[in-house]
Design a binder for these strands. Structure first.
Lengths: 217, 217
DNA sequence: CGGCCGACTCGACACCGTGTCGAGTACCGT
DNA sequence: ACGGTACTCGACACGGTGTCGAGTCGGCCG
């Protein structure tokens, strides 16, 4: 409301300038949130629960975070970073094999979010109400889409993939498909795929969409 | 809380047995909800707003609906029914042309939800918190998936489509893709497709996935 | 007709969660 | 010893939800 206040250096996404002593409390709040989310949905967790869990009073909570949502956003930020890193590592590992690289990237993302189901559900429930969560998510998806689109363009350029709609458009559709199917499968929503089939099915759709068949050439 | 009270006959989803006089009030609440949703998100609409808009007091609202969410659910129910009907009509109209029938079905669903954006957003925001909304949505998706799967099986049986993963698995992935891309595009979330390209892009993915190319044979 | 019953209505209340304000305490550098 | 800054919390105001109980009103049955 008052000033733009530029991101403080050292803060991951610049939520607040680091303190030295209160750092422990901040961590305690985060840890409490993660633990409670494993037990019940975000809507059943109050600021008071978070504060008590961290051994502080409710007003003190507000010294560290502006709201319950901000806690989840911080947590989500970390997981997103983890997913990005793990995906990048998988891509690096796969080298030139396009099929393997897409499979690896997909697997990395799936595993990261599967390892944080509770948080993922919480983030999903904030999606509608929090512009910050939406923005963060857009940013991640945008990165994945951009990477996918340039991979498709590369395959087309070397004649391995046929022409068709703009690569970016296909990339948008394919990445949102992944997002939704992974989410649905992990959260038990129906209709879903069996966890074991997920990778194969999504990969088939990707390959057929990009190559017009089950692989390059 | 008291008795199971079986669905009253004549009620779409059997929210409550129909009254004769109160019927108007119920309609007024529904109409108010639809109008207010056009102006602001569901979270900024209180039961009091709904009641005042319908010309009744807040306690009286509770005579008609158990909660704000139930109002949205009722509205969603209608739109879903509309989408189903419109989709079925498109399918009937297209006859044997598979490509045309998928395009028509897709278009019908997209148009129905585009015509009720406000409600759709409200439903999306309830998705996380309301089991009923999730169940209704599962039911719709399940129907679409089942129809898609049997269409794929038919194409495979007549030799027009190559074998691959179980038809149902492909159908699950493709239908969730549609759901998400349509939703994202309609709600302005990024990354999205241009509204005009949506149909072509999704259809391309469908055809390539099912036929391993851009069309039957 | 008179009385009852079920449909419907609302004022008042209890409750809960949020966010803020202002009065502290404790420690640090000067 | 002093002033400031980091931190803490009791108490409050607020806004929303859902319920309770006392009422009105109209139809219809005896």
């Amino acid at each position: 409301m008052a000033a733009p206040l530029p991101d403080a250096p050292g803060a991951g996404r610049g939520r607040r300038p680091r303190r030295t002593s209160g750092d422990d409390r901040e961590r305690a709040i985060l840890a409490t949130a993660e633990e409670l989310l494993g037990q019940r949905p975000l809507s059943d967790i109050s600021v008071d629960d978070l504060a008590r869990g961290a051994g502080i009073s409710r007003p003190t909570f507000y010294f560290y975070f502006p709201s319950k949502d901000a806690v989840v956003l911080t947590l989500l930020d970390r997981v997103v970073e983890e997913a990005r890193a793990s995906r990048a590592a998988a891509l690096r590992r796969a080298g030139d094999d396009v099929r393997a690289s897409w499979r690896g990237a997909l697997e990395a993302v799936r595993d990261t979010f599967a390892a944080h189901r509770a948080l993922t559900s919480a983030a999903a429930s904030l999606f509608a109400s929090s512009a910050e969560v939406r923005a963060l998510w857009s940013e991640v998806m945008e990165q994945f889409v951009a990477e996918t689109a340039s991979a498709i363009d590369a395959e087309r350029a070397r004649g391995a993939a046929p022409p068709g709609p703009p690569a970016r458009d296909l990339a948008v559709a394919l990445n949102w498909m992944n997002e939704r199917v992974i989410h649905v499968t992990a959260s038990g929503q129906q209709p879903a795929l069996a966890e074991d089939d997920l990778l194969d099915v999504l990969l088939t759709v990707w390959l057929r969409t990009v190559y017009g068949g089950d692989g390059p050439r």
